[in-house]
Simulated assay, not measured.
Amino acid sequence: MKFGIVVFPGSNCDRDVAMVTEGLLSQPTRMVWHQETDISDLDVVVLPGGFSYGDYLRCGAIARFSPVIKSVIEHARAGKFVLGICNGFQILTEVGLLPGALIRNRDLHFICDRVPIRVENTNFPWTQAYCAKQVITLPIAHGEGRYYADEETLKALEDSDRVLFRYCTPTGEINDIGNPNGSLNNIAGITNEQGNVLGMMPHPERASDALLGATDGRKLFEGLLAAKSLTATLEVSAARPM
């Protein structure tokens, strides 16, 4: 599985992702400069965390006009995987690949912490390596991470089980105590209808290395690799003569 990590002016988590995909999981990985347009060689496109274009105007608002974004949209519409982490999640909502918006945190403070996250379901490749309702710990670092959407959008997300991650208490309760930024429905990560696009504010790449004492995020990447292996096996089986 080949990963491509988009690098915008202001990205600062791109190398962190590469350390996981290439360094820990030995997957071919290349850095994709925001002015590139040919990403046809990639299986997974990652929009990393950071401050694309300095977060001027609004988080992700300028990045949406980068030349690479049109190709990312086409990549997603072709059913290929797209992962947006933190600022990447903000960009995905700006370009319309995911619904809703990320707005200023409830207390208007930048939050940098490690928080409990509940895995809501394992019906998607992103979460298949976890257990449903499993509580994991992932880092967050954002000032505009409060998920917001209208009631109709929230209902659609909930009814279709597209909320994959929620902020929670250490014992898994979903309430205001376990909600660090005021996100509606404690939402920390969602997918599109097809399930191939994931946006999440927590940083799985910062919790994937045992040397750092945190590995809860690694299973997200391992789930993708398992999905790719299964697809390859099915394709080979289908190609065999009866």
Rank of each mutant, 00 (worst) to 15 (best):
D43S: 14
L102V: 10
I69D: 09
A63C: 08
A207H: 07
L83M: 14
I187W: 07
Y147S: 04
S40A: 13
Q27D: 01
F124V: 05
Y148E: 14
G50V: 14
V7M: 07
V68M: 06
T29E: 05
L98N: 09
T191H: 11
P125M: 06
P116W: 10
L212N: 00
P116F: 08
V46R: 07
G199P: 14
R146C: 13
P48F: 14
K70I: 01
L154A: 06
M1P: 06
I39G: 02
S237Q: 01
A141E: 02
K219Q: 06
V68N: 03
P125E: 06
F65S: 02
F124E: 04
F51C: 09
T171I: 01
S208R: 02
T231V: 11
D14I: 10
N12V: 12
R162E: 05
G49R: 08
L224T: 04
L83P: 14
Q35A: 11
A207C: 03
L25M: 01
C13A: 15
A210P: 00
V236H: 12
P125L: 11
E120M: 15
V72Q: 12
G143F: 07
S66W: 02
D150C: 15
V44M: 14
S71D: 06
R162Q: 13
L102D: 13
E22D: 15
I73E: 08
V45N: 12
R77L: 02
G88K: 05
N196H: 12
T231H: 15
I39F: 08
G96R: 11
P170F: 09
G223K: 06
I136T: 01
G217H: 04
F221Y: 15
L184F: 11
L97M: 09
K2T: 14
I69H: 04
C131T: 13
P241H: 09
L212T: 00
S26R: 06
V119M: 04
L83E: 14
P125D: 10
A149H: 05
D176K: 03
E205N: 02
S237V: 03
N123T: 12
V163L: 00
P139N: 07
L157C: 11
M1W: 01
T215G: 01
A101H: 10
E74P: 01
Q90E: 03
K228E: 12
V135C: 09
V44H: 07
G199F: 15
G54R: 03
G54S: 08
A156N: 10
L157P: 03
I174T: 13
V32K: 09
F124G: 00
N123Q: 10
W126L: 11
H203L: 05
E173A: 13
